[in-house]
Design a protein around this nucleic acid. Sequence first.
DNA 1: GAAATAAATTGATCTACATCAAGCGGAAAA
DNA 2: TTTTCCGCTTGATGTAGATCAATTTATTTC
Lengths: 192, 192
Amino acid sequence: MYDTFQQYLDRKIELTNEEKELIRSVSILKKLRKKQYLLQEGDVWKYHAFISKGCMRMYAVDDKGLEHIIYFGVENWWIGDRESLLNQTPSRLNIDAIEDCEVVLFTDTNFEMICSKIPAFGNMVNAIISKSFNVNQNRILSSISKSAEEKYLDFIQKYADFAMRIPQAMIASYLGIKPETLSRIRSGITKK
Amino acid sequence: MYDTFQQYLDRKIELTNEEKELIRSVSILKKLRKKQYLLQEGDVWKYHAFISKGCMRMYAVDDKGLEHIIYFGVENWWIGDRESLLNQTPSRLNIDAIEDCEVVLFTDTNFEMICSKIPAFGNMVNAIISKSFNVNQNRILSSISKSAEEKYLDFIQKYADFAMRIPQAMIASYLGIKPETLSRIRSGITKK
DNA sequence: GAAATAAATTGATCTACATCAAGCGGAAAA
DNA sequence: TTTTCCGCTTGATGTAGATCAATTTATTTC
């Protein structure tokens, strides 16, 4: 279960065996069944979570009870509510498993300890955050400037490797459109 | 001109006089007239920019020539294209001055040097990036889940301190709606 | 492998927002 | 002062996407 994470690390940075062991020693392995929550609205998020297997989503539920997905994560991606973690405030978000999943968790304290003891690790983390920032900025641009069809085409191109693992209704939610609309867009595309 | 930045630093972190001097010694002061570019599409962004006076915007221009504003910055905010900076690729974005502005620039090299020589500064930068990440994530949620009117009300509440300095058409662009629509929303609100 | 449940499609209609176009008021230029 | 421009408003109409509702097609579950 830890293998995927170790391989991920090996691809990103060079570590001594002691460093590897340090990281491993504070890791927490967790399995999640499909539909199981990793984080539930109202709870305070305390971790840094690496997905070693499966597919997850992070979403908010509005006053009308509608779900709005703001993030998907699969193998080798990180997931979590950084806002709740940073401010130690109850999360307004939910994270749950779209498929049976395995995750590697680090408490924030341990994670910070690793970052400071192993600079390469800290740098890797900063790089990931920077990249995520850019991804979000591009998504904002897309959301204010593109049509539903363009957003969908961008999505399946950008996330080609896992897009087919995600139910259409969830993709629609992520794009901010209705499932019916996405269905029509798809049938429109295949006709072309 | 440098005062605003120095005061900003003093509010955020404690520095020795030597450290202050180090930072100051590599700072670049720049004045911008209204409408002047700080970054133009196609150029590679090389800096970290702090706005000490005025109001700026960052935006993309689409194939139809329409501008889409993805960010506003005022006094005490940072601005820049982190994607272009990180990858050293030509920027797809423009940054220009909405009012006459003053900015404090640091080349990326000097900025990294400061971050590593003055850990408190580096930590401050990481905190800013984390916060920006959260801001962007909230904006994504808003954009996929709220009506035009809700987005506008959120905007003027969140950015009450400078919202009135920004032309309505630009606010509309930022929200991903048309100026006519925003005008109608506003007249609808005041009637209530 | 049938029954039950959930996901996706399809049609009819509705609405929020866009588009096109004209006009107004206020600031800047001449 | 007049002229020009620009930001904003207002009206008439168009349209992308939403809503409501009925089926069909997959997936679970027993």
